[in-house]
Design a protein around this nucleic acid. Structure first.
Lengths: 217, 217
DNA sequence: TTACATTTTTAGACAAGGCTAAAATTTAAT
DNA sequence: ATTAAATTTTAGCCTTGTCTAAAAATGTAA
């Protein structure tokens, strides 16, 4: 249907969109490790195929068509991640790059059967919701620790960064999905904070705090 | 490591090799639905990468390097086929095209874990042996029905053609791996023959007889 | 509002893979 | 042994997706 490259652009635009009305060429380039000029070329092609609306010098947004395509890719990516963790003993920091390949396999039956095998999971190993076959998924309200008020607490419901390094950092400090976390102190100067889990207190940088999403209690 | 295109050439050459000392450019083109000129181009690239030995106007053979690469691709293809049939309820005529995509996914851990999940199967759904992690597999002696003597019998141990049409033909006549088959008559004129299974007698064309491999009893 | 900085697009090039048409080589057949 | 037929290679072009460098548009700050 669409090339791997097109699918990667669609996915990136979808993720960058989130609220904003238009996504900038530069942001797409940044998110994909390519140059802005390459992005411009591709945006024209996506617009030709009615997958995106492209307004030169202003930005891009996906059409409904493009959005449908994006959610299917995300569905595949997240289902494969669950498969890798549940069935093949991968740890949550190992799944991303393999899922990046698997998400481009074309077969409706494959993905529906995979969904069945995994018993229709609602969330992937990083806490992100999995769209159903129709592309619907609930966006649960999650708040970055860095946005909390001092004293508030919640359970870890998702992470923004899924890099190996970041996930291994969490493993080292015994933080995982479902871990209850309370914000004890928020340092105004650098945005770092002191948090408390069931097991211990921990000082984390703003970067980390931005990447940990809680379902507030 | 290697591109999808390179891997497909390597796989095709490996399958065409089988005994022959050199594979012809035209045969490769035929086996891949491309033109001979495209094949020539690729053969030079494979030779540069020390995956094949290419002798202009004479033919090509894989180097040990190329053979190792081919057996790994075949290992992946056949393991995925088992996965699709055993875990995802695919029928044996539905697996090929999806496995053609999955065989190019790059991840050593993925394939070794898949092997474990499937409990180290020896054969794929078409009766073909699956190479182990070191690339070793036993080539069991199988004979096409068309090569048998009148009166000989055996059990179906493999099929040559894995197209949906052919496999559905077999399903229709209740012939599957392990079915015991006896050659009753061999028509010298057109190579067609009369065979007998546990359930019934059946007249099959030479094309069919060439595609059914028996382990002779 | 003019000047500078940033962002984005265009123009031109390249690599991978593939095609057609023509040339070269090998094989087969008088 | 020559010619004819088949196979294979070369030459030149195309598409996809990428890049660099230069030009154009937009945004910002004095």
């Amino acid at each position: 249907m669409h090339s791997v490259s097109e699918e990667n652009y669609i996915k990136t635009i979808y993720h960058l969109q989130d609220g904003k009305s238009l996504v900038s060429t530069n942001d797409i380039a940044g998110g994909m490790n390519t140059k802005a000029s390459s992005v411009t070329d591709m945006l024209k092609k996506l617009a030709d195929k009615n997958l995106a609306e492209y307004i030169p010098y202003k930005g891009t947004r996906l059409t409904q068509n493009g959005i449908n395509c994006a959610t299917q890719i995300i569905r595949k990516h997240r289902l494969w991640e669950v498969f890798l963790v549940e069935k093949l003993d991968f740890s949550w920091d190992e799944v991303h790059e393999v899922a990046e390949q698997l998400e481009h396999i074309q077969s409706r039956k494959l993905i529906d059967e995979l969904d069945k095998l995994l018993e229709y999971p609602k969330y992937d190993p990083h806490g992100d919701p999995i769209p159903d076959a129709q592309g619907n998924y609930e966006k649960t309200a999650k708040t970055a620790i860095s946005k909390l008020e001092k004293g508030q607490s919640g359970v870890l419901a998702g992470v923004h960064d899924t890099s190996t390094r970041f996930l291994q950092y969490l493993d080292k400090h015994q933080i995982e999905l479902g871990t209850q976390i309370q914000l004890l102190e928020l340092e105004a100067f650098d945005g770092s904070c002191l948090i408390k889990t069931d097991l211990k207190e921990l000082h984390i940088s703003k970067t980390i705090a931005d990447n940990l999403y809680l379902k507030v209690l």
